[in-house]
Simulated assay, not measured.
Amino acid sequence: MAMTARPATPAPEGLDGEESPRERVNRRWNEIMQETRVAQTGVQILFGFLLSVAFTPRFHGLDTFDHVVYVLTVVFGASATAALIAPVSIHRFLSGQRMKDETVEIAHRFMMCGMALLALTLGCALLLILHVVVPGLLAELLVGVVMLWFVLSWYALPLWLRRRAARRPESDEV
């Protein structure tokens, strides 16, 4: 008689014990892989476009500042790509080694690093573009506002929500 595995289901909030530790780590791994797929696609497309910029006729006419920003953008983009693909490589090397807890934690850290590097890549790419098309300090101001938005939406809001949930009394949980 063949046994079928019970699907991993998240425990409803406030009902600890509904999900086994193994189910929890498998669910967390699957979530990280889904999130990684989304981020990888975006950073790889962006990186591909960045690589082609240096081969356009207009690139050589840019000033030193723009060339420096371009180099930083490409380096950040390559680093973001590496960080966002690292969980896949780690999984391949450690698959079957009974290290899924460690793999999930390391993949989480690479994702956080990759997202920060992706934000820097996007900020530098935006600076490069706006510095060419917008006069004066307006380019830097606009990039600053966009980078602030990244910090608020990607880091500050999730951390605030996490702290808020941690402070919630157990009786408030549904």
Rank of each mutant, 00 (worst) to 15 (best):
E31Y: 05
P7G: 05
F47T: 15
F59L: 05
F65V: 15
L72R: 05
R6K: 08
A11P: 01
T9K: 13
E23T: 00
P12N: 02
V75F: 07
R27A: 10
V43K: 01
T56G: 14
L62C: 07
L50D: 14
G42H: 07
R27W: 11
T73Q: 08
M3C: 00
A80Q: 01
A11K: 04
F65A: 07
D63I: 03
D16V: 04
T4C: 00
A54Q: 14
Q44H: 14
V75D: 05
V69Y: 10
G48N: 06
A5S: 07
V68F: 12
F76W: 08
R27P: 07
R22I: 04
V69W: 09
V69K: 11
P12T: 09
T73V: 05
V25G: 01
V69M: 12
V75C: 03
V71T: 14
N30E: 08
E23P: 00
M1L: 02
T9W: 01
A2R: 03
N26E: 13
Q40A: 06
L72V: 12
F49N: 12
Q34F: 15
R22S: 09
T4S: 10
G42Q: 11
R28D: 15
E35G: 15
P21V: 07
Q44S: 09
A8S: 13
L15F: 03
L72E: 06
S52G: 15
R24I: 00
V43C: 07
Y70E: 05
E23N: 01
A80S: 09
Y70P: 06
A78W: 02
V38W: 12
Q44F: 13
T36N: 08
M3F: 06
A78N: 04
Q44D: 03
A80D: 00
Q40E: 15
T36H: 04
H60A: 14
Q44L: 11
T73L: 06
L15T: 09
G61E: 11
G48D: 05
S79G: 12
G42V: 03
Q34R: 14
H60Q: 14
E31V: 13
V71Y: 06
R58N: 15
N30V: 02
T36Q: 14
R6G: 01
S20M: 02
V75K: 00
I45E: 04
S79M: 11
V53M: 10
M33D: 12
G42K: 10
V71K: 11
A39C: 05
P21R: 06
L72S: 08
H60Y: 13
R58Y: 13
V68C: 04
Q44R: 06
E23W: 00
E31F: 08
G77S: 03
R6M: 05
A80K: 00
I32E: 09
F55D: 06
E23R: 04
F55A: 13
M3P: 02
F76N: 04
T56P: 11
D16C: 00
A11N: 04
P12A: 10
A54R: 15
P21M: 04
